[in-house]
Amino acid sequence: HNLTITQGKLFFHYNPKLCLSEIHKMEEVSGTKGRQERNDIALKTNGDQASCENELLKFSYIRTSFDKILLRWEPYWPPDFRDLLGFMLFYKEAPYQNVTEFDGQDACGSNSWTVVDIDPPLRSNDPKSQNHPGWLMRGLKPWTQYAIFVKTLVTFSDERRTYGAKSDIIYVQTDATNPSVPLDPISVSNSSSQIILKWKPPSDPNGNITHYLVFWERQAEDSELFELDYCLKGLKLPSRTWSPPFESEDSQKHNQSEYEDSAGECCSCPKTDSQILKELEESSFRKTFEDYLHNVVFVPRKTSSGTGAEDPRPSRKRRSLGDVGNVTVAVPTVAAFPNTSSTSVPTSPEEHRPFEKVVNKESLVISGLRHFTGYRIELQACNQDTPEERCSVAAYVSARTMPEAKADDIVGPVTHEIFENNVVHLMWQEPKEPNGLIVLYEVSYRRYGDEELHLCVSRKHFALERGCRLRGLSPGNYSVRIRATSLAGNGSWTEPTYFYVTDYLDVPSNIA
């Protein structure tokens, strides 16, 4: 807008934040220059609390790290170098490059900038070799853009010569660093050979998330399962459950009422301010606690030095998902009996873990797994792929695949051998790939016309006998059925096997 004052003059007093240069501009645009008398524009009460600059400061050096910015700028000295009290560095987070010096300023003089007072450097006698002032900004957020400017702080001049310097606002972004852990990993099994893994992005990506790394490792069953005799009275049979499938998407929606109208769909109840505040506090606490764990609990591995020492970490090797089922080394339970199943799973520490690289999504279907087997899954978020990966501390989750139908069934015939004193040795093959492992066998036998009897055969007993022995049988026709019990439950009964026990007292003698 054009402003013209045809008559009258300007009068400025007691404006401590208004620089004289701005008042002189007002004289020019209003056409009143030359009308004012000496005392109409006070030299001592206008701009006496402001830094009124008329020179431009330029930054000469900028260096960044993930949490620091090192700045240096060209030296500046007023005509009387004693008038320079120091520099004021202003900075704040700036997602967009549209910041002005006066953003967030209120009537009390406060604003949204963080201000650092910096002492002037030592003055050199040689004007050509003056030290460049600077400042190291610490405690910054990774991968965050900051708006920065600097200006001088000078003393009051009796001659009211307006001098000083100020830089333009520059924008500097800190470097990326390792992201925080992925949030809320959930693993479920939808079949006997697959596990579905879902997660949420890290709360602090500290860069642009480029991919996720998912490692999985087959877990050995508890050692007590191999040692305890679950045929003993009072000892509860062990059981394991597989990871249940995901709930429906509708039930997972946030901010939804727990109660549904019987007449149909209901609208979600909005969260109160107290609920939102509580969630923010919980989120802040979780982030602080995660940072504490990362800094205190997890110790970084030592990389190899120039002395030739090897990095103890196993090298990563990509495998196809079809090879995942046989990740671990199978060892027989008892070496003397080769027909026992290889369900003991000690994992070799030198073995390469299978892994998958996930790009542009937060889910993965891990296939080719062994049925009813526990897996430990390790999830890392990465925001750099080359020249070397920059990934987060791992988040861990466990899951067990679903049982395989008929995996616990005894394959092959049940054979028998009759000894003296009416002892019958029953023999059968253990299931080759049971659900988890076989903890015991149930032997059901009966003599024709009598009630059915049951015998429990422990895992250890089966390994020693290759089956079991029935003792003290009365003469007669017998039928026997056997079924295995694994961590997933009972298998199917075998087809009945028949044998006849004679009275050993009636056996004919070869003595003449």
Rank of each mutant, 00 (worst) to 15 (best):
D250F: 09
G322A: 13
N421H: 10
L321E: 10
E224S: 14
S363D: 15
Y230W: 13
Y448G: 00
C231P: 01
K361I: 11
D261P: 10
S342K: 15
M427W: 09
P475E: 12
S239G: 14
P387T: 13
L232R: 14
P475R: 11
S315T: 09
Q256E: 07
Q275M: 10
H425Y: 10
D229W: 12
E258F: 15
P403I: 02
A335T: 11
D222S: 07
I366Q: 05
T288D: 02
R390V: 08
T415Q: 12
D506A: 13
G449E: 15
P332M: 12
M402I: 09
S479P: 00
P314Q: 06
E247N: 04
V214N: 02
S348L: 09
K361W: 08
N510T: 00
P434E: 04
A381F: 00
A335Y: 04
A463Q: 12
T497A: 08
S486D: 02
S305F: 13
E389P: 09
G412F: 09
E495M: 02
R376P: 02
S341F: 08
I377C: 10
G491L: 03
E356K: 12
D273V: 06
K460Q: 07
F226G: 08
L505F: 11
Y500A: 11
F246D: 08
F215K: 05
T485L: 15
C456V: 01
V358M: 08
E442W: 06
T343I: 07
S392G: 03
Y448P: 07
T347Y: 10
R319Q: 12
V359W: 06
Q380L: 11
D250S: 09
L277F: 07
E452A: 12
G467F: 08
G325T: 15
S479Y: 12
S223D: 15
L440H: 14
R400K: 07
I276S: 06
Y441M: 02
S367T: 06
G374P: 10
V331I: 08
F499I: 11
T333N: 09
E389F: 15
D323T: 12
P475F: 09
Y500F: 09
E388L: 14
Q219Y: 13
G322L: 14
E465Y: 14
V296Y: 09
H461I: 10
H425Q: 13
S305D: 12
E417R: 05
N360C: 08
S262L: 08
S341G: 09
L228R: 06
F289T: 02
R483Y: 03
L440C: 04
L455K: 12
P431Y: 01
N255G: 13
W428L: 01
G368D: 09
L235E: 02
V507L: 02
L437S: 00
L293V: 14
F355N: 14
S315Q: 07
